[in-house]
Simulated assay, not measured.
Amino acid sequence: MLKRNCQHHRRSVAASLVQGVYVLECERQQNHQGSEVLAPPWWEFFHFELIRKLVDDADSSFFGAIYEFKPPASNQDSNAPKFVIAFRGTITKKESLTRDLTLDLHIIQNCLHRSSRFEIAMQAVRNVVSAAGSSNIWLAGHSLGSAMATLAGKNMAKMGILLETFLFNPPFFSAPIERIKYKNVKQGIRIASSLITAGLSVALTAHHGKPVSEDSFALLSSWIPNLFVNPGDHICSEYIGYFEHRRNMEEIGAGYIERLATQNSIGDLFLTAFGKESEPLHLLPSANLTVNLSPSPDFRNAHGLHQWWKPDQHLQSKQYIYR
């Protein structure tokens, strides 16, 4: 039975289904057949069935999968998701590397939504939601795949459809402030950044009437995705400081400034000033943030998906709600 109310089990299931997509693509590239195929146990163990592979139209790679939960008749669970849509991250193998790296660059440039891969993913999400209803669907992704799931989840949330979402090592590209060892220096940089960002936001409000992102950010506040990050992973570790800084600013009475700053990035505000509207993918109003405090020997382990199904990790979870 899928133990939906057990946080470790939910996390492990979501991570395993994402791993299934990784294995599917690796086996496609290696042309595995028959007894060589190793992907199915990643979903069959939890009584899921693979009903569709999501195929990139540029390189024919498998970048996602749609799973349907089909438990034995004796283990029916009305709280379990009917469908899970999972997205893999970057694979460093020659047949998919170029396309994956191009999309990684799209994340940095905040233009992932313009890619054909995302259009395929978004249409798949819409179709499943239309068929099954939002309460029966999970989104899950790792790294690049978590960016896909984030964008899909945001788009659905703007329509009032809140999907349960699991984001493993989601990209947050910014200056690596979280890696600074001195707490006071780190806090000072974050406060200065918030003041600059809020100031630019106010200036644009005076010019345009209101910040471009204000309405959409408020709409997203009821959507609470589950984020899983590791302090040793510079790709996602800035989420730790991003959310904690908001709480700190509230405590010192600067909550209004931070509410302006948290929904914008300096780079995107400059683009807006020049008439190029851009909504930062990585900025989220609310989240359940889980941090893996277990020591990671290197970046590969800190960024690895495998850490999220291990039972012996030192995890710390906090909920952040935007108000």
Rank of each mutant, 00 (worst) to 15 (best):
P280E: 06
A132M: 10
Q319K: 05
L101G: 03
A124C: 14
S222W: 04
P211W: 06
N169V: 02
S35Q: 12
L271C: 14
T272S: 05
V13P: 01
Y242M: 04
G304R: 03
G275N: 10
Y239W: 06
F69C: 01
K53V: 08
L50C: 04
L281P: 08
T197W: 04
Y182N: 15
L271E: 15
I177P: 05
N110G: 05
S221Y: 00
A175N: 06
A149T: 02
V18I: 15
A218E: 13
S146P: 10
M1C: 08
H9P: 01
E164F: 00
I240L: 09
H245P: 02
F63W: 04
R28T: 08
G160M: 01
L162R: 08
L204F: 05
A140H: 08
L220T: 02
G209Y: 12
A218W: 08
P285C: 12
V291I: 15
S213E: 14
M148I: 11
V202Q: 11
A39G: 05
G64I: 00
P41G: 11
M122T: 01
N169H: 00
R247C: 04
Q123L: 11
E164P: 00
F69E: 04
F243A: 06
F63G: 06
K310D: 07
F217H: 13
I177S: 00
S265A: 00
I266F: 07
M159T: 04
G133P: 12
H234W: 14
R300I: 13
H314C: 13
A206S: 15
C6V: 07
E244H: 10
Y256C: 11
I108M: 05
F173M: 07
